[in-house]
């Protein structure tokens, strides 16, 4: 059976991608943020995952409001990035993994998650920034990616508890996949930030740290929040915590927290990085 080695949660702020494009990683603003990543990269290097399942939200590249799925999964051999309109450099195509995608789709529908399936799908910074952070220099060609998009843009959005259960159904599907492949699951986005309105610039460090505490062994504490609670506590884009919850839902058994860091502000955001290994990690 396929194994889930662990979960990685990371912010996906566009400015991170721009900073990497410009080689600013060691400048004073960015140094502490980027210096947090090598231990996670080393873990990935040692674990040699075959497949990365990445929960992210599309910010108006693939999905406009004309057809905006609540949950969508890619089932394509390749995914392309494209111009998002404001200047982040495009990255080379990402390899897909169709067989496990279809297996997950079958299992999800069997368990009453009637998901949208995309056989073509452009992936935006929500997915590409984490990929670039984990494998700088576009060295992600060896890993096959399954993108899973969660609506975090237009209310109503799926509830935090639902996102957690959705992640759990995906984790169960992966663990039931007859293959010896190794999978790592990513929850991207967050933590607290608000880009819009007079409330722009709102960040809630205590809440972010609370979430990083609870997600390890008491994720149920976070699934009690409504999306309204998340907007109130973490800002209008703080609902991206839902991707972290989906990632956490996919993990099972005893977890070891191998890394945690938090930097504020990165752009307008409280930026978190966390690595949770399962007992299937080497």
């Amino acid at each position: 059976m396929a194994k889930i080695l662990g979960g990685i949660a990371t912010s996906h702020i566009p400015a991170i991608g721009v900073a990497m494009d410009k080689g600013l990683e060691q400048t004073p603003y960015w140094k502490n943020f980027f210096d947090a990543y090598p231990p996670v990269r080393e873990w990935l290097y040692e674990q040699e995952p075959d497949i990365a399942v990445i929960f992210y939200n599309d910010h108006g590249l693939e999905f406009f409001h004309d057809r905006k799925p609540t949950f969508a999964i890619g089932a394509a051999a390749q995914y392309e990035n494209a111009d998002e309109g404001w200047g982040i450099a495009e990255i080379p195509p990402v390899r897909g993994e169709t067989e496990l995608s279809w297996h997950i789709v079958n299992q999800l529908v069997e368990h009453e998650f009637d998901i949208t399936v995309c056989q073509e799908m452009k992936v935006d910074h929500g997915l590409t920034v984490p990929l670039t952070l984990m494998w700088p220099g576009h060295k992600y060609g060896h890993i096959r990616v399954i993108p899973i998009a969660i609506n975090c843009e237009r209310h109503p959005m799926p509830k935090p508890s639902r996102c957690f259960d959705f992640g759990k159904a995906i984790g169960d599907a992966i663990r039931a996949y007859s293959s010896d492949q190794k999978v790592v699951v990513f929850g991207t986005g967050g933590l607290s930030h608000q880009l819009d309105g007079q409330r722009a610039g709102f960040i809630n460090k205590p809440f972010d740290l609370y979430c990083m505490d609870k997600i390890v062994n008491e994720p149920e504490a976070l699934t009690k929040f409504t999306n309204f609670d998340l907007v109130e506590q973490a800002g209008s884009q703080g609902v991206e915590l839902n991707m972290w919850l989906a990632m956490r839902g996919a993990l099972q058994g005893k977890l070891t927290e191998l890394h945690r860091s938090y930097h504020l502000p990165i752009s307008n955001t409280g930026a978190g990085l966390q690595l949770l290994a399962t007992s299937d990690a080497v």
Partner: peptide
């Protein structure tokens, strides 16, 4: 989402 109140300085981007 169950809209339970208003958050000052925030416009909820919902269906309407």
């Amino acid at each position: 989402m169950s809209q339970v109140g208003h958050i000052p300085g925030n416009i909820m981007f919902d269906g309407p």
